[in-house]
Design a protein around this nucleic acid. Structure first.
Length: 466
RNA sequence: GGCGACAUAGCCAAGUGGUAAGGCAGUGGUCUGCAAAACCGCGAUCCAUGGGUUCGAAUCCCAUUGUCGCCUCCA
């Protein structure tokens, strides 16, 4: 069975065949960098990171491009409010986001183009559209795309041009030949970042950057174009219109869109202000928690985010981590070992079968949980040595395809470690003397301090919470 | 108002024609001095509601209700 991906363009799950054998070109829309990124952005980044990791694990060479919109109305407005330079402000949020992506264990993209570094390609792109009469230089100095000139406009978002009447929503503009037309190039206003162009000083509109970057960094035709489903219209619709008008070819084979993260039943977004920033999240939870939440459901469906889900996910991660506790037995053969070995051997195929089905990460996680149970059961049955190590290695390998780090909480790194060890030592003496009340007191008081003790067959272990 | 997506156990959630994965919570048991963790067992006769197609539907079609997204910047 081969990889199949849901394509927003066809609204169907289609077999995936890259344009160039063994190579995948993937363009994912990144953020407009005017404020702190929130966990909705993290979700999107994680979704496409898993796509990329799985493609690479499957043997493809992936060229992955993610852009930063660093020239934009909101950036300029924000900079003016704060008395900062717009480009400096954009740069600071760009660097912050790149750092957060690293913390989230998102693999670095092959390229991170920005509007400000793509101006010549954008201008060239617009000139090409004007030459084909798909765009025009208006009297106010702006350049607009001729929407009605594009016969299949609306095919991605399934909208008919005539349904998009220039009602209150679309501000009629005297300079536009048609109210539906959108700006490719905006004439400069005083105090704004501006670049020289055939149409005078100005800056690019929002949608043109992705068309130009995709063409420049990848090709006229690419395999996968991704982003949040809030970008379907108008952003991706306009990208298709621009690129296909210029090249005369189909742009992206597959359009992938992730669902929105829901906070209290609403989409988390900058404009609504109901957000939790990535920094806030990571100050309280590990990157694996973020990833597990995303992986637990379909990437295309809305992701419910609340305290209960968060708590469930914390427990879920603890459960996976339980498989990495060391063996205490040494059995390396027999029925229990055979059972373990069989499950370990078939896990990759089951995992692949799940992921091949439009990146069904929830089903893939179920395969991991099967492994977890088998490993724990084997440990309880006294299995150790090579078969046990191989099982743990398999679990870690498949988890890594999903980008899970599964690092032991660095409990031993805390400054209190020597003192905790001392208390455990004393408590061991108390237990030897059957001083249960005192030994329980130690355990309970440590628990109140978020230090959990567990008495096992080979002594007492401890972990810290959070 | 227009377009689109979705509606599965207490919660999260997979499953798109053949008789309901997984996780969390709960509960009975094993283990433990007691716990914790782990392991073994238990949970939807049913998949928003009402019709229809089919030998057979959570899965396809129609209607209804509800939720969310887009139509303006948005991952």
């Amino acid at each position: 069975m081969a990889l199949a991906i849901y394509n927003t363009l066809s609204r169907q799950t289609e077999p995936f065949t890259p344009l160039v054998a063994d190579h995948v070109s993937m363009y994912v829309c990144g953020p407009t960098v005017y404020s702190d990124a929130h966990i909705g952005h993290a979700m999107s980044a994680v979704v496409f990171d898993v796509v990329r990791r799985y493609l690479e694990w499957s043997g493809y060479t992936v060229r992955h491009v993610m852009n930063f919109t660093d020239v934009d109305d909101k950036i300029i407005r924000r900079a003016n409010e704060q008395g900062r330079d717009p480009m400096e402000l954009a740069e600071s949020y760009t660097l912050a986001f790149l750092d957060q992506l690293g913390q989230l264990n998102v693999l670095p993209a092959t390229a991170y183009p920005r509007v400000s570094t793509t101006i010549p390609q954008i201008i060239q792109f617009i000139e090409g559209l004007i030459a084909k009469d798909a765009a025009y230089h208006a009297s106010n100095g702006d350049v607009y795309f001729r929407v009605r000139g594009d016969e299949d406009y609306g095919k991605l978002s399934r909208r008919a041009v005539d349904d998009m009447r220039s009602g209150a929503r679309i501000a009629p503009d005297e300079a536009k030949a048609d109210p539906l037309d959108f700006a490719l190039w905006k004439a400069a206003k005083p105090g704004e970042p501006a670049w020289e162009s055939p149409w005078g000083q100005g800056r690019p509109g929002w949608h043109i950057e992705c068309s130009a970057m995709s063409l420049h960094e990848l090709a006229e035709q690419i395999d996968i174009h991704g982003g949040g489903n809030d970008l379907i219209f108008p952003h991706h619709e306009n990208e298709i219109a621009q690129t296909e008008s210029l090249t005369g070819k189909n742009f992206a084979q597959i359009w992938m869109h992730n669902g929105m993260l829901q906070l209290a039943g609403e989409k988390m977004s900058k404009s609504l202000g109901n957000l939790i920033t990535i920094d806030q999240f990571l100050s309280e939870h590990s990157a694996d928690i973020m990833r597990l939440m995303v992986l637990s459901g379909s990437y295309r469906a809305p992701l419910v985010y609340n305290d209960e889900v968060l708590a469930d996910t914390e427990r879920k991660l603890e459960r996976i981590m339980s498989a990495f506790k060391p063996a205490h037995g040494t059995t390396t053969s027999g029925a229990v070992v055979d059972t373990l070995t069989t499950i370990v051997a078939k896990a990759p195929a089951d995992f692949r079968s799940a992921m091949d089905s439009d990146f069904n990460s929830a089903a893939a996680l179920a395969v991991l949980f099967d492994l977890v149970r088998s490993i724990n059961a084997a440990r309880d049955a006294g299995v150790g040595g090579e078969p046990f190590d191989a099982a743990q290695a398999r679990l870690r390998e498949l988890a890594a395809v999903l980008g899970l780090r599964l690092e032991a909480t660095s409990a031993s790194k805390t400054d209190a470690a020597p003192f905790i060890e001392l208390l455990i030592e004393l408590r061991a003496e108390l237990r030897k003397a059957k001083q249960w009340a005192l030994s329980d007191l130690v355990r309970n008081r440590l628990s109140e301090l978020d230090v959990q003790l567990e008495d096992g067959p080979s002594g007492t272990t401890w972990t810290t919470k959070g």
